[in-house]
Nucleic acid binder design. Sequence first.
DNA 1: TGTAAGTATCTACGCATGTCGATGTCTGGT
DNA 2: ACCAGACATCGACATGCGTAGATACTTACA
Lengths: 108, 108
Amino acid sequence: MTADQAAQVVPLLKALADPVRLRLMSMVLSHENAEACVCDLQPAFDLSQPTISHHLKVLHESGLLNREKRGVWVYYQARPEAMEAMATLFTTAGLSLPEGAQPVGAGA
Amino acid sequence: MTADQAAQVVPLLKALADPVRLRLMSMVLSHENAEACVCDLQPAFDLSQPTISHHLKVLHESGLLNREKRGVWVYYQARPEAMEAMATLFTTAGLSLPEGAQPVGAGA
DNA sequence: TGTAAGTATCTACGCATGTCGATGTCTGGT
DNA sequence: ACCAGACATCGACATGCGTAGATACTTACA
């Protein structure tokens, strides 16, 4: 993995490396059509509305969530490409164990 | 995904959400037996030795790397359990798209 | 014992980040 | 036109984090 490749993935990891944002992503993904409006998400947290809005903005700007305004409500939707990029990173791509490797505790 | 589950995974994501540490993990994983000593890793970066040592400590304390001292050298080894936990998170577990979901741009 | 090399720890500094309160913006209804 | 509700933005504060220099520790070797 080159420095450039790392620099591309790090923003996604940074966005997910927060308990609130991780739960927000999980909640969006488990909602109908992998989307949810802020009014669905906020009540699950003991945080102010601006704070939730801030975290959703971080997830949006990192490319993990799409935004769509419908009337008064704003719906956030999971971006499949981003989720696949994460899954690929830890399976086929740069961050998976080589098959033959036998590190400590690998217990053949 | 519960708050507790999120709290367990976040430290791993936090540890990887840094370009230097992500590359360190990648380098360790691509080395023979998924292990490498500091002397192998440090030259790849334009950072001081204490800084590299600090990052390796973060990866170690988060459970991503094991430490083993052999003579003067210290070898860091990837922990398969941690790597699997990450892979699982983005595939079968809490952060994967439900199969039937058709969010924006999902392109059937 | 002394010295050199590899690595970790300590301290400090600047920047980024999570949080909130106050306020702004937009939409729908009366 | 006015009001109420949903959400975003702004400003400020406390905390966390990445980095480096100085220093300590450990091992190998003469």
